[in-house]
Simulated assay, not measured.
Amino acid sequence: MPPGAPEEPPGPPLPAAALSTGAVARRLGVSPTTLRSWERRYAIGPARRESGRHRRWTPADIARLELMCRFTAQGVPPSEAARAALDAAAGGSGVVRPVTVTPGGPTALPLGEVRAECRGLARAAVRLDAPAVEHLLDTALAQLGPVMAWEEVIAPTLHAVGRKWASAGERYVEVEHLLSWHVSGALRRPRPAPRRYEAPPVLLACAPGEQHSLPIEALAAALGERGLPVLMLGPALPAEALREAVRRTGPRAAVLWAQSGTTAEHALARAVAGIAWGPHGARGHSALLLAGPGWGAATSGPRLERLFGLRSGLAVIERLVSAPDPRASGAGPAAPGACGS
């Protein structure tokens, strides 16, 4: 304050329930960066600050944010969500204009008929609005679960970005990278449910040379939600590393993802399916489940099965993991269940 300037009269004392930005972020399930971004861009911050410019959010401030979070989770752009939340707090209707849920223009992604949450995620990705992308992904996973969030929100947006990129040369590559990075992080954030089965983990890996790992990251999140043990080995796993991991862990099932026909190594798949593990006299084999469009529709070979889709793949894996362990009963290796779509 400049010398000689009159002092501002002290404001009313803050309510005892006023919270810091970090506490509000934890309560709403968003990042503190997102809250600060909303405050800076849309003037939906706290009504006042304490000395030292520390933000303190009152129950009324938090109620506005909760309403904004509800709107953005429905696919409403943050700017319109903030306007509606502020309008409702001032006694207005808080109605969002219908035009905001139907994006268009030259930068819009080709989505077709999709959920509103998918449209909101696409808009945020095209704007390169990282805090909004993070918030929308976390909200979709929390409210819909990994399977529905992947099938109805995340995958359609990723496919739309890919189509936009393919039709626009080198444009929109940055959108794909931003979205992929945040999808990967969001899929790993939810804490797995307590383990339901005392069984070796399901091994998940991409074929050698395959860098597209998001689909099996979604599978890992869905397995974790069901309390199924998972060992994720990620993209482009070398062939010998895959074979060694199967020998060392003895999984009931191993999933090998290939996005492209150039990375789908059928000879490797047959070799991995033939690996025997365990002590002599109690040897076992893993069911090798081939996932991704790179493998084609038909596969052949002992203990080789094809997965079609996340939901049906989960059912196959759960059936394999829940089957009696042949090592405990002395029986021969169990045959894998059919892997249908």
Rank of each mutant, 00 (worst) to 15 (best):
A5K: 06
E8V: 14
P9H: 09
P10T: 02
P12T: 03
A16K: 09
L19A: 15
S20I: 07
G22W: 09
A23C: 01
V24L: 10
A25Y: 05
R27G: 02
L28H: 01
G29I: 05
P32S: 13
E39Y: 01
R40I: 04
R41F: 07
Y42G: 09
I44K: 05
G45E: 10
P46C: 05
A47L: 14
E50C: 00
S51Y: 06
R53V: 01
R55I: 07
R55T: 07
P59T: 13
P59E: 14
D61V: 11
I62Q: 14
R64E: 14
E66N: 01
C69S: 13
C69V: 15
T72S: 12
T72L: 08
P77T: 11
P77Y: 11
A81R: 12
A88N: 09
A89R: 10
G92C: 09
G92T: 12
G94W: 10
R97P: 15
G104A: 15
G105F: 08
P106Y: 10
P106W: 12
L109F: 12
A116W: 09
C118A: 15
R123K: 05
A124Q: 11
L128N: 06
L128T: 02
P131L: 09
P131N: 12
P131R: 09
V133P: 05
L136M: 10
L136Y: 00
L136S: 13
L137F: 07
V147A: 11
W150M: 05
E151D: 15
A155C: 10
P156M: 02
A160V: 07
V161G: 03
G162C: 03
A168T: 15
G169A: 11
Y172S: 08
L178F: 01
L179F: 01
S180L: 00
V183G: 00
S184D: 08
A186Q: 06
L187D: 04
R189N: 04
R191N: 04
A199W: 00
V202P: 06
A207K: 03
P208R: 07
Q211E: 14
H212P: 05
S213N: 00
E217C: 01
A220L: 03
A220V: 07
A221F: 02
L223R: 04
G224L: 05
E225Y: 00
R226H: 09
R226N: 05
V230T: 04
L231P: 02
L233C: 10
G234Y: 09
P235Y: 05
L237F: 04
P238V: 08
E240A: 13
A241R: 10
E244K: 05
A245L: 07
A245R: 08
A245M: 07
T249N: 15
P251M: 10
A253G: 01
V255M: 01
L256R: 02
A264F: 09
I275H: 03
A276E: 15
G278R: 02
R283G: 13
R283Q: 15
G284L: 13
A287K: 00
A287E: 03
G292Y: 06
W295G: 11
P302E: 14
L304E: 04
L304A: 09
F308Q: 10
G309T: 07
R311E: 14
G313P: 11
A323F: 02
R327P: 00
A331P: 00
A331V: 00
G337K: 02
C339W: 03
C339Q: 03
S341R: 13
S341D: 14
